[in-house]
Design a protein around this nucleic acid. Structure first.
Lengths: 140, 140
DNA sequence: ATATTTTTGCAAAGGAGTCGCAAAAATATG
DNA sequence: CATATTTTTGCGACTCCTTTGCAAAAATAT
């Protein structure tokens, strides 16, 4: 967890060119605990001079699943490192102050306990799936 | 289900003025099965001439919980009638063709069965909560 | 070392959604 | 029902987040 990942090789493995902008993003995300808005990341991550490029890099990294886009209904996307199986989690955002907390588990019933412990009330959830439908999976 | 709801009274009860634009939206949504994009609704619902007003009405109706905003990561919001307890459901969208299906149930384990029956593969889900945090609920 | 592919920076544009304001419609009041 | 007050409408302009086109620069392949 504290050990630094070899992002350089990870990028190569996954077929993306290694650039300092991408390494900066990944190293920064490894240090801090998200999810973060693009605004926040752009401001804080050194070595990124252009926002269009920044967006392009976030998209590329999300495409190869190295980072994860998180949408909390705020009108913009957030990103965080994609901690796979071992660290699958969700979030809860306060509808008033917008404070975000991570929920380090994945089943609904257990969620409600954890959320109550956190002191949240009046909880609603949005659970949506993405998949490849029958027709589309045949076409590939 | 087929019976027409008395939207006029519903709006009054909930403290919103009764306007023909709002009635049109509600009557139309009662007839068709969503969730629909604003674009789609604006085009198809008669008696709505201005998009800004249309957005304002969708927001007002969503605020009083008579309709429900649904976000499927498409970059825009969808809306549908809010069928409460008795008809709580979620959706699955194909990441390729964007076809949307409704899932008429609410627990994750049961979901996976239903989704597989629908023929979707490579399923991922986004489950996010909204609530009022401790600090904010005290402040009210 | 050179050719090819990918990424960058810049400026401009796109799309979804919002805002201010005066006119119009709806609701409340006498 | 007539008038006063509140809410909604229509219009245009605008904001915010994100994407695109293009030529220069950097990275990778040969």
């Amino acid at each position: 967890m504290r050990a630094k990942t070899d992002w350089k090789n990870k990028l190569k493995e996954l077929g993306l060119s290694v650039t300092s902008a991408r390494l900066s993003i990944l190293q920064w995300l490894e240090k801090y605990h998200g999810p973060f808005s693009v605004e926040e990341l752009f401001e804080k991550i050194p070595g990124t001079y252009d926002k269009a490029t920044f967006y392009r890099n976030l998209n590329s990294l999300a495409e190869i699943n190295i980072i994860k886009e998180v949408q909390l209904g705020e009108g913009f996307s957030r990103y965080e490192l994609n901690h796979h199986e071992n660290h699958h989690h969700h979030h809860i955002i306060c509808r008033i102050c917008k404070k975000i907390e991570s929920l380090e588990m994945c089943f609904i019933e257990e969620f409600s306990k954890t959320i109550k412990k956190l002191g949240f009330v009046n909880i609603s959830h949005q659970l949506e799936f993405t998949g490849t439908c029958q027709k589309c999976s045949k076409g590939i």
